[in-house]
Design a protein around this nucleic acid. Structure first.
Length: 722
DNA sequence: TTAGGGTTAG
């Protein structure tokens, strides 16, 4: 073998190699560059393929793929190592674009008839894992098999990782793992984290136990971090504590990655005290440690604490990573903290973070959840090819801000652009359909759910049965509900609410009993539903019993909604004085007079109890009601009682307080067009035809014996409309 | 005496 110009001594080569290796290992780019310059000047490297490859490797390890590529192209007599240095340089970046480059380089290499070896395949499988491209993965797998490269433990582990990441291939992956001729700690960790991503906790724990008791030599910090992420669920907190103790005893907790995984595990288990404790005790905090605790508080609903920790982090002189900022943005979203959210947005720009997909998703989410849909949309429009998570955030943003039409429009656009919706997309559009009572569109979404193979598990099943129930299709709603493999509290609640709202109170109550037998613990929403069912069915005794049971048996303090249901229940049953007493006793619990007296006032109108109605109305006046209907009703009641001075007084009060009556309005959607009507409407293009039809229908009703209710109070209310 | 795999934060 030639070592180049004879003037260069053999030991000089040795020293050059040592230097390059050292700079590569320590990612010392400036020193590496000057060495490269020296090599070019003396023309040493062109004669030695080892040196040229090492230069490519140096740039690749320093993440300078552009320079690595240039150095690669300069090599006249490339060998497989030259290709591998470049391919692995790209694959180690772990990005989509770089992984695509890996596959292109691989194709080019094959065209130029270079034979891949195990080093090549580990890079290829890693790139395919990043791309989650099962097709290319299988092709490469076949080639690797043909060339006999799969028995290598590096190739085996990267192939295992590829099948784990592709998802849904865990059984194949496990088979592959069991059949591997050689396994080491990396193969074990890959399998454990494969189970972790699929939330197969028991399987992950099983592997952890084996490695712990049978293969102690393979236990390292990677094993701990992956098993900790696998068990990060509230029901496994005791296992988490054992592993925490074990890692402490064996000295792994002092590794920053294990400490971080421990903080995250406790936070995801919902045990913030333990997370905080692990955070405080961690000897070496990096931005991941801070992100873990900040995100933990944000996800557990203590957004104030999350924001406070962020400023503490700042005071400690620790620079946030983009992940920290995403965690803080999430805290702002749930805390409705638009001002702080905007500050973080500014921070992201200031620190020069490239607006990647997940950062934009967090921003869109924050703006939408803080009610600023316009800015959320600007964030969405920033990227040319938003991923499904970003689409879903935007759609959910519209739904949560009540703009269901735009949500549906976005969903149609998504389908037209060929994007495949995910579970959460379907849940959001189903919510939009529920709010619009758009049964036809809801059925189409149901068809998409079947087409895309989503199961009826929570949350899709729940959203679907709610959509049917709220659109009045209780039979279909019930069918979906019964076919769900498991129901959570929300699914029970929504089905109950559907039944209750559609006049099927008895069935709602039966469902409540069934839910208790099923072992599901009711929440305050459950009680709103069943109290409302009692109210509509006139079941006063039952309602009272349930209202008391709520706090005695379930420890749920009554809220405004529950008090309102009770007053409505008494009111509908004509028990007006009981309602009055109830309101007066409830006044000790919550400040809800405005709402409760208003309900009683309507009930008094319905039962023509004008004296009590006047009493309730005066209470509303005292409380400074801003609802026009309260003033209108009270003045009508005074009219009916002949107390004209009071009529005048109430009207004056209404003017004085600037309360104005909004005209009644209704709308209907026909053939994708909305027809809106307001009181005394003359503007609709077909108003003449509409009036004729109304007249025909009124006549038909009268002919069939319908007698309109001439309540003086109702009549006067009509007079006030003009 | 050049090249490869796995973990934690979203």
């Amino acid at each position: 073998m030639s070592y180049g110009p004879s003037s260069v001594a053999l030991e000089s080569f040795a020293s050059l190699f040592t230097k390059i290796l050292h700079y590569t290992q320590h990612k010392n780019l400036p020193k590496g560059q000057s060495l490269h310059a020296h090599l070019i000047k003396t023309d040493i490297s062109s004669s030695c393929i080892y040196l040229s490859n090492s230069i490519v490797n140096l740039y690749a390890k320093c993440h300078c793929l552009f320079d690595a590529h240039l150095a690669f192209q300069e090599i006249q007599n490339k060998d497989i190592v030259s290709w591998n240095c470049l391919i692995n340089g790209y694959s180690q970046l772990g990005r989509r674009d770089s992984s695509i480059s890996v596959l292109n380089l691989f194709k080019q290499m094959r065209r130029e008839n270079y034979l891949p070896n195990p080093h090549t395949f580990s890079g290829i499988f890693t790139a395919v894992s990043t791309l989650e491209d099962a097709f290319s993965g299988k092709q490469a797998h076949c080639l690797g098999f043909k060339l006999g490269c799969l028995s290598d433990v590096f190739v085996g582990s990267s192939l295992l990782n590829m099948y784990c990441k592709a998802g849904g291939h865990l059984v194949d992956a496990r088979k592959m793992f069991d059949e591997m001729p050689e396994r080491n700690s990396v193969s074990w960790t890959t399998m454990i984290s494969g189970y972790a991503t699929q939330r197969l906790v028991k399987e992950a724990l099983g592997m952890f136990r084996v490695i712990l008791w049978e293969r102690g030599q393979d236990v390292n910090e990677f094993v701990f971090t992956s098993v900790l992420s696998a068990i990060a669920l509230p029901e496994f907190i005791y296992v988490g504590k054992q592993i925490h103790g074990f890692s402490l005893k064996n000295g792994f907790l002092w590794t920053v990655s294990v400490a971080n995984a421990t903080v995250t595990m406790y936070a995801k288990c919902g045990s913030l005290d333990d997370a905080c404790w692990a955070f405080e005790l961690s000897s070496e905090k990096n931005s991941i440690t801070w992100s873990a605790i900040i995100t933990g508080y944000a996800q557990n609903g203590d957004c104030m604490k999350a924001l406070k920790l962020f400023s503490e982090m700042h005071l400690c002189g620790m620079n946030p990573s983009e992940y920290t900022l995403v965690g803080v943005l999430n805290a702002c979203s749930d805390f409705d903290a638009l001002r702080e959210g905007k500050q973080v947005h500014g921070y992201l720009i200031k620190l020069g973070f490239v607006p990647q997909m997940y950062i934009l998703t967090a921003l869109v989410d924050m703006y939408a959840k803080c009610g600023n849909v316009t800015d959320a949309r600007r964030g969405f429009d920033y990227l040319k090819e938003p991923d499904i998570v970003l689409w879903t955030s935007m759609i959910a943003g519209y739904v949560n801000n009540g703009d269901n039409e735009n949500a549906m429009g976005m969903y149609c656009r998504l389908l037209m652009e060929g994007v495949v919706p995910n579970e959460l997309t379907m849940v959001s559009v189903l919510k939009a359909c529920s709010s619009l009572a758009a049964l036809e569109q809801g059925k189409q979404i149901h068809a998409h759910i079947v087409k895309h193979g989503f199961s009826l598990e929570v949350p899709i099943g729940s959203a679907l049965s709610t959509m049917y129930a709220k659109s009045g299709s209780l039979h279909e709603g019930d069918l979906v509900f019964r076919r769900m493999p498991a129901r959570d509290l929300v699914s029970w609640n929504s089905m109950m609410s559907g039944l209750s709202q559609n006049g099927r109170g008895v069935e709602a109550l039966e469902l409540f009993e069934e839910m208790l037998l099923d072992g599901t613990r009711p929440d305050y929403v459950t009680f709103v539903n069943i109290l409302s069912a009692c109210s509509h069915m006139g079941l006063v005794k039952r309602g009272w019993k349930i209202f008391k049971m709520m706090s005695y048996e379930f420890g749920i303090e009554p809220r405004l909604e529950h008090f309102a249901c009770m007053v409505d229940m008494f009111g509908r049953a004509g028990k007006l004085y009981e309602a009055k007493e109830f309101i007066e006793s409830a006044a000790n619990h919550v400040d809800c007079g405005l709402c409760l007296w208003r309900i009683l006032l309507s009930a008094c109108r319905n039962y023509r109890n004008y004296e009590l109605g006047a009493y309730a109305g005066e209470k509303l006046m005292e409380l400074g009601s801003q609802e026009s209907s309260a003033y209108v009703l009270l003045s009508s009641i005074y009219s009916a009682l002949g107390r004209l001075e009071d009529v005048e007084r109430v009207r004056r009060l209404m003017n004085l307080r600037g309360v104005s009556k909004e005209p009644g309005c209704s709308w209907i959607e026909l053939k994708s067009q909305f027809h809106v009507f307001v009181v005394g409407d003359q503007l609709h293009a077909q108003i003449v035809d509409i009036r004729e039809e109304l007249w025909r229908l009124s006549k038909l009703m009268k002919d069939e014996g319908y007698k309109p209710d001439f309540d003086p109070c109702l009549e006067l209310e009509g007079v006030m409309d003009i």
